[in-house]
């Protein structure tokens, strides 16, 4: 579904990513972790073709997104749902207009029909549609905004891949759990390829089967949770050190869940 081959990317003179390669299959779920400023979010922007790497290539469904015209890129993007950091909801539109945005722009459906679908979607992401649909995004809590953003991405053409940029940053524990549960549910039920970028390792641990750690623009680790725990790489150990306690707790929880 998504293949990243030997990409290097720099903003001006500042290198951000160095020779990064990995691929994500359809229905696979991957967490990309790393300290702030390590280039995690840049990867998502590159996958969407919002930026292009200086070297290497990004293939989405076998097509190099950077070799496409803007119109063709727009077609590819329609198959990828992106949840930006802080939701990136359109602040001058109501909640239902945000959720139904894609249909309002790209379909000939009536306003009533789009409204109906938006209400259904809000229900799907666990929100009380009647209560919030006419509100503006700024009137919602951070967790609600994030869920509206997920709903907005899902109500486009059924996306083949979902990209989440720091989906739980700044949320309280309850909202974090709700958002993570929703992401897991989508990956499980709809078999959507999922990439979650986060620096909140404690949230990421219980979520995916595959973990990629990016440190200083390079892939320092790519493997399972157990392999991550046993990694002897100094950079990875340093990154994991502050989270070691919660890391072990989650592993224990996982163990008891399976037995």
């Amino acid at each position: 579904m998504i293949e990243i081959k030997n990409i290097s990317f720099a903003y001006g003179e500042t290198p951000i990513l160095k020779n990064v390669s990995f691929s994500v299959g359809s229905s696979e779920s991957v967490v990309v972790m790393g300290p702030s400023g390590s280039g995690k979010s840049t990867i998502l922007r590159l996958i969407l073709g919002l930026e292009c790497p200086q070297t290497g290539e990004i293939l989405v469904d076998g097509k190099n997104i950077c070799h496409l015209r803007e119109k063709e890129k727009q077609e590819i993007r329609k198959n990828i749902g992106m949840v930006f950091q802080d939701g990136a909801l359109f602040d001058s539109m109501s909640v239902w207009e945000n959720v139904g945005f894609y249909l309002l722009e790209h379909s000939n459906l009536s306003i009533d029909e789009i409204g109906k679908r938006a209400v259904e979607m809000l229900g799907f992401v666990g929100l009380n549609a009647k209560e919030i649909m006419d509100k503006l995004p700024e009137q919602l809590s951070g967790g609600m905004q994030r869920r509206v953003a997920i709903g907005r991405s899902l109500l486009s053409t059924a996306p083949k891949a979902m990209l989440y940029d720091e989906p739980t940053t700044g949320l309280d524990p309850q909202s974090t759990e709700n958002v993570l549960e929703l992401i897991s549910k989508l990956n499980r039920e709809r078999q959507i390829a999922t990439i979650v970028v986060t620096h909140q390792i404690t949230d990421a641990i219980g979520f995916a089967k595959r973990f990629i750690v990016i440190i200083e623009g390079e892939i320092a680790f790519d493997g399972s949770l157990e392999e991550l725990r046993d990694s002897k790489d100094l950079k990875v150990l340093q990154f994991l050190a502050p989270f070691r306690l919660s890391f072990n707790e989650v592993l224990k929880k996982e163990f008891f869940n399976y037995t």
Binding site: R77, L89, H106
Partner: peptide
């Protein structure tokens, strides 16, 4: 600055 422009692009809108 709030990523709404990128969100527009991600929905296939110029």
């Amino acid at each position: 600055s709030s990523n709404q422009i990128n969100a527009l692009k991600s929905f296939g809108i110029d």
